[in-house]
Design a protein around this nucleic acid. Structure first.
Lengths: 239, 239
DNA sequence: GTCTATAGTCGGATAGAC
DNA sequence: GTCTATCCGACTATAGAC
């Protein structure tokens, strides 16, 4: 602990005369900071004291707004799911349009690549999204589902993958619930996710410092090639 | 906690008259149980009390053998890395033989598939390996490397992937250190790893209860198709 | 080498002033 | 709504008997 850091809490006035929106302000700040800390250190590795101090609040506030650590964690899951869904909503809508119009195979393949690519960019590009994906990953990793997992699955994973599944089932000319289709979708997602989950491994193998600029572009292009290769597979065994 | 479980600690005699191997016995039991618990709950979520009691020992023993929780964790990483390396050693050796003999493209592709498939089987099949992979995943997920990560990377990841990289670089007819090659190797690994890391997500999407029997076979076959598709890609841009 | 008992620390939650 | 002060439980690590 180098510096003393007294009274340095982020200022948070901005209410003209009524106590306007002071509460929501701290509440959201708490939420966003909590996602970052939980993502970085996991549920057990995170202390409510740290979250509170980073947000310029105290642990009592956390209790007041979220009814404790567990409640805060669940609120984080919901907030994160909604925000991430908003982020890809445009692409989902576009894909659904293609599906309604019975577009050709190639545009559907392009669309799958587009969705993946958008995810890649926001995973490595945006400042927040880095820890957000870690939060997701940590929640999925558990052997048993847990309440936060359910929230994320229902509000984010299910709607997102549903569209991907429909696209891929058309592309491979198979039924929606064919395991081949589902496994392919999971593999496409996993291929990308691993670069975030195995972040250190990937960087060390590649001898890179981070995934930015040209290096990110390179990654994106290779992953796209893979997706196209996977989806080009001739539907040999109709199962 | 249903039953009382007094004096039920796993018996561990077996020393004829000298105090032969009593210590090593508890030490190894501690180690193996610790990997499971750490894998399941993560470092922070794990209490040394639980490990000790599961191993039929006490926290003092843990201090004695491993110099505390941190030491135990590092010992787990080393143990796990060595054991997993032993497990794939035969396939690595076989691959190196192919490389020395400058085998044809198809056999090298088969070999990559073989290595992946072996990993898939041991990840989902064997009793231990389930939590072992979680241990690996949790260690990789961190934003900063940590000492256990280094151990795993040097003793397991590096030797394993080195062979895969050589195979893939030959298959794609590129240099060893071409990012395209490395990214492809990581994607191949990631594709599989995600089914363990996103275990719950995968099961729920597929509507499965577990990955066993026919379902595992199906998964293996689809993943193999993907690898073949990825590697079949014509080396268009020689970069 | 193995155990029990305990010291010392930290984190989550609560009470109650403002 | 926001804060300080405090309680209490859980955890790691240690001391010392056997």
């Amino acid at each position: 602990m180098p510096a003393v850091r007294r009274n340095s809490r982020p200022r948070k006035q901005r209410h003209s005369s009524t106590g306007y929106a002071r509460g929501d302000d701290t509440k959201n700040r708490l939420l966003e900071i909590a996602i970052g800390v939980f993502g970085e250190s996991g549920y057990d590795g995170t202390s409510t004291r740290l979250i509170a101090s980073k947000a310029g609040a105290n642990t009592a506030a956390l209790q007041y707004y979220f009814d404790g650590k567990e409640g805060l964690y669940l609120a984080c899951a919901g907030y994160l799911a909604d925000r991430m869904l908003e982020n890809i909503q445009p692409l989902i809508a576009e894909a659904d349009k293609l599906l309604r119009e019975s577009a050709d195979r190639d545009s559907m393949i392009d669309q799958v690549c587009g969705i993946l690519d958008r995810q890649a960019v926001s995973m490595f590009g945006a400042s927040d999204a880095r820890e957000w994906v870690l939060f997701l990953a940590r929640e999925q990793i558990g052997l048993r589902p847990g309440p936060a997992f359910d929230i994320i699955y229902e509000r984010l994973t299910k709607p997102t993958t549903a569209t991907l599944v429909k696209l891929v089932s058309r592309i491979l000319d198979r039924l929606d619930d064919d395991p081949q289709v589902l496994i392919t979708v999971l593999a496409i997602i996993g291929q990308l996710m691993y670069f975030r989950i195995g972040y250190q491994t990937a960087l060390r193998m590649l001898g890179w410092q981070d995934f930015t600029g040209e290096r990110l572009d390179h990654l994106r292009s290779v992953l796209q090639q893979h997706v196209r290769a996977m989806l080009a597979a001739a539907p040999s065994s109709p199962s």
